[in-house]
Amino acid sequence: MMMMRHLPVRHVTIALVGALALGGAAVARNPQFQGADPHATFIDGELWVFPTGGPGGSWAADRFGAFSSRDLKAWRSRGEVLRIDTIKWIKDDGAREHFLWAPGVATRDGKWFLYYSVGPQNPTPSRIGVAVADRPQGPYTDIGRPLVTGGNGFEAIDPMAFIDPKSGKAYLYAGGSAGAKLRVWELNRDMTSIAREVPVDNPPQFTEGAFMHERNGTYYLSYSHGRFNGPDYSVHYATAPSPTGPWRYRGAILTSDRRHKGPGHHSFVVTPKGETLIVYHRWENPAGPAPFKGERQVAIDRVRYAADGTIRPVVMTDGDKAPTLP
Rank of each mutant, 00 (worst) to 15 (best):
M1F: 00
M2E: 02
M4R: 11
R5S: 01
L7Y: 06
R10N: 07
R10M: 08
V12P: 00
V12S: 03
I14Y: 01
A15V: 09
A15M: 11
L16I: 12
V17K: 15
G23L: 06
G24K: 15
G24I: 10
A25K: 12
R29A: 09
R29W: 06
N30V: 02
D37Q: 02
P38M: 01
P38K: 13
I43N: 14
L47F: 03
F50S: 10
G54M: 12
G56D: 07
D62T: 03
R63F: 13
A66S: 09
A66P: 11
A66Y: 05
S69C: 15
R70A: 11
D71K: 03
D71V: 10
L72K: 05
A74G: 15
G79Y: 12
E80H: 14
D85S: 14
D85M: 03
T86D: 11
I87N: 01
K88N: 04
D92W: 05
D92Y: 08
D93S: 13
D93P: 03
E97N: 09
E97I: 03
F99V: 01
T107V: 10
G110S: 03
G110V: 04
L114P: 11
P120D: 04
Q121P: 09
Q121W: 07
I128M: 04
I128Q: 02
V132W: 08
A133W: 01
A133Y: 02
A133T: 04
Q137H: 11
Q137S: 11
Y140K: 04
D142S: 07
I143Y: 06
T149M: 00
G150M: 01
F154R: 06
I157S: 03
P159T: 00
M160N: 02
K166V: 04
A174K: 04
G175A: 09
G176D: 00
L182V: 02
W185K: 02
N188F: 08
R189T: 06
T192Q: 08
V198I: 08
P203N: 04
F206G: 07
H225M: 02
G226F: 09
F228S: 05
G230T: 13
P231Q: 12
P231R: 13
D232T: 15
H236P: 02
S242A: 12
T244E: 07
G245K: 15
R248N: 04
R248T: 11
R248K: 03
R248S: 08
Y249S: 14
R250H: 00
A252R: 00
A252L: 00
D257V: 03
R258S: 15
K261N: 03
K261R: 13
G264N: 14
H266Y: 12
S267Y: 07
T271M: 08
T271K: 15
T271V: 09
K273R: 15
T276M: 13
I278Q: 05
I278K: 00
H281P: 05
E284D: 08
A287K: 01
G288M: 11
G288C: 08
F292Y: 03
V298Y: 07
R302F: 05
V303P: 15
V303C: 12
R304P: 14
D308M: 02
G309D: 09
T310L: 14
P313I: 00
T324G: 06
